[in-house]
Simulated assay, not measured.
Amino acid sequence: MKSKLQRIGVLTSGGDSPGMNAAIRAVVRSCAYHNLECIGIFRGYEGLIEGDFKPLGPRSVKNIINRGGTFLKSARSKEFRTEEGRAKAYRNLKEADVDALVVIGGDGTFAGAIQFNKEHDFPIVGLPGTIDNDINGTDYTIGYDTALNTVVEAIDKIRDTANSHNRLFLVEVMGRDAGDIALNAGIGAGAEEILIPEEDMGKDRLIASLKRSKKAGKTSSIVVVAEGDQIGKNILGLADYIRNNMDEYEVKVTVLGHIQRGGSPSCYDRVLASRLGVGAIDALMKGERGVMIGLVHNKVISVPFEQTLEGENEIDTELIRVADITST
Rank of each mutant, 00 (worst) to 15 (best):
E172M: 12
T326L: 10
Q115H: 12
D97A: 11
A111M: 08
S30G: 07
G15P: 00
N92G: 15
G217R: 10
N136D: 08
V291Q: 04
G137L: 02
L195D: 10
I281Y: 10
G112F: 00
I315N: 15
A87W: 01
N313P: 10
T141C: 14
V27D: 06
C31A: 09
E248L: 10
Q260N: 07
K215A: 09
G40K: 09
V102A: 13
I207H: 13
D282R: 05
E250D: 15
L183E: 02
L319T: 08
I135P: 05
N35L: 12
L148G: 09
A189N: 08
S266W: 04
S221K: 10
R270V: 03
D316C: 00
G129R: 03
V251C: 04
A178I: 06
H120W: 08
I8L: 06
K4C: 13
A239C: 14
D99S: 02
E172A: 02
V27A: 12
I320F: 00
D200T: 05
N244E: 15
T308F: 01
V10D: 09
F53G: 07
S220T: 05
Y249M: 13
D269S: 03
E37Q: 08
G294W: 06
V171Y: 10
I155V: 15
T12S: 15
A89F: 07
R275V: 05
E318R: 13
Q230P: 07
A185Y: 00
G263P: 06
T130C: 02
R29S: 07
L210E: 11
I235R: 04
Y33T: 10
Q307S: 12
G175Y: 08
D139L: 03
A113S: 14
P128M: 09
E248F: 14
L183M: 15
I158P: 07
S74E: 06
E288F: 05
E227F: 07
T12E: 12
D121R: 08
A162I: 03
C38D: 03
D229I: 07
G262E: 14
G105F: 06
K78T: 05
C38Q: 13
V253T: 15
G277H: 08
P128E: 06
F110T: 03
G9L: 08
H297C: 14
N298W: 00
D160C: 07
S221T: 11
K218V: 00
F53R: 00
E119Q: 14
G126E: 08
L276E: 06
N21L: 04
K78Q: 14
